[in-house]
Computed example of a mutant assay.
Amino acid sequence: MDDGLQVLPVHGIGDVTAGDDLVELITRNAPWLRDGDVLVVTSKIVSKAEGRLVEVPADGPERDAARARVLAAETRRVVARRGPTAIVQTHHGFVMAAAGIDASNVDKTHLVLLPESPDESARRLRAGLAERGLHVGIVVSDTMGRAWRNGLTDVALGAAGLPPIRDHRGEIDPYGNELSLTQVAVIDELAAAGELVKGKCDQVPVAVVRGFPGAGGEDGPGAAVLLRDAASDMFSLGTEEARAEGLAAAATLPDAATDLPASAVAVRRAIIRAGLDEAVAVASPQTLRCTPPDPSPAGLMRFGADVHRLRAALAAEGLASAVGYDGSGATIAVSRAA
């Protein structure tokens, strides 16, 4: 009979320090473990056991400066920054706040870094438990925010002994439709399930999910397969990178035109965005006429900048443009970009 999933906390592990044997701590406090269980292990105790701590001043500006240096060392690139909050990509490839550096559940003179290789950490744990006759799956979890959604959830940073993804592509749903995109990140779902009984303040760093099929086999590819490569990531650019790329594109706009008609609404938005709503005559959505208000050399230079700014605003609306100058001004041909 299928009893579904159970999520069980492992109590009694207590504080973990560098060099501690996590396999011993877990098995001593969970003698009821059995083959096929999935252990969801908080990355913090993995990091502590592996000595991934950095000593910093307890308070004051010296602490802030030290934390900034640690953050820079753990960062591959800054994705976004707002006030004191930095969203960065770590050297592992994770995109998360403050590179996952944590100051909670540790004394004030230390910061906890992420494990150097969470998948390898998971494999070592799985192997250590296998030596004791327990064939289980391991998920090394940590907390992340999500783009476009409030609140935090736990996700998998590392995994061993279970498939990280359940691939439904090629299957037929109950209505006869073939699934073509559905890949479920089951190790993330297991990490989130484990957090329901671990909590943030209860000192329960390990949870056991019982009843998940397929756990306890070989190491498998780990959580690294959940990291989307830049080529297939539609949101890979951070805010600063996107701004820099947009400015570079605006600085080198080619004269281009297509046979695709431009949207009159989009053209109007671009004119307003460029701040030229009183200086541009719209002959048609496809033709704009610009006349310099000041024919002096300085005025003509400003006019050229205005025309380019308008073309950049058109490009931001997905519109192509080509400009021609004559003795009385400029005519811009506008079309939808190919």
Rank of each mutant, 00 (worst) to 15 (best):
228 R>I: 12
63 R>Q: 14
325 Y>R: 14
55 E>A: 14
234 M>C: 02
252 T>N: 07
262 A>Q: 09
224 A>T: 12
109 T>K: 10
182 T>K: 12
19 G>T: 07
145 G>Y: 09
172 I>E: 06
129 L>M: 15
129 L>P: 11
81 R>I: 06
9 P>E: 05
148 W>A: 11
227 L>D: 07
215 A>D: 05
320 A>P: 04
259 D>V: 05
250 A>D: 15
49 A>P: 07
134 L>K: 09
316 A>P: 04
185 A>V: 00
316 A>D: 15
105 N>K: 13
17 T>N: 06
320 A>S: 15
109 T>H: 14
321 S>E: 01
36 G>N: 04
292 P>V: 02
200 K>P: 02
335 S>Y: 01
228 R>D: 01
304 G>F: 08
186 V>G: 00
189 E>H: 15
140 V>Q: 10
227 L>P: 09
235 F>W: 12
127 A>F: 00
146 R>S: 11
331 T>N: 02
338 A>D: 13
243 R>P: 00
26 I>R: 06
71 L>N: 09
272 I>N: 07
115 P>C: 09
265 V>Y: 06
188 D>W: 05
155 V>G: 08
332 I>L: 08
241 E>V: 02
313 A>T: 09
283 A>T: 13
139 V>H: 05
260 L>P: 05
324 G>H: 13
282 V>C: 05
287 T>G: 00
178 E>Y: 02
45 I>G: 08
114 L>D: 06
211 G>R: 10
127 A>P: 01
195 E>S: 15
46 V>L: 04
207 A>L: 03
82 R>F: 13
270 A>I: 03
317 E>G: 06
16 V>M: 09
208 V>K: 03
165 I>F: 03
16 V>R: 05
221 P>N: 03
37 D>L: 06
237 L>S: 13
337 A>Q: 11
170 G>T: 03
222 G>W: 00
293 P>I: 08
325 Y>F: 15
217 G>V: 01
333 A>E: 07
273 R>A: 15
265 V>I: 08
152 L>V: 13
224 A>G: 12
139 V>D: 01
268 R>W: 03
127 A>S: 13
140 V>K: 02
257 A>K: 10
116 E>V: 10
215 A>R: 12
123 R>V: 03
259 D>H: 11
264 A>T: 04
66 A>E: 11
73 A>P: 00
130 A>H: 13
62 E>H: 14
33 L>S: 02
331 T>K: 02
184 V>R: 12
226 L>V: 04
143 T>A: 11
92 H>C: 01
54 V>Y: 00
53 L>I: 14
36 G>C: 03
294 D>W: 11
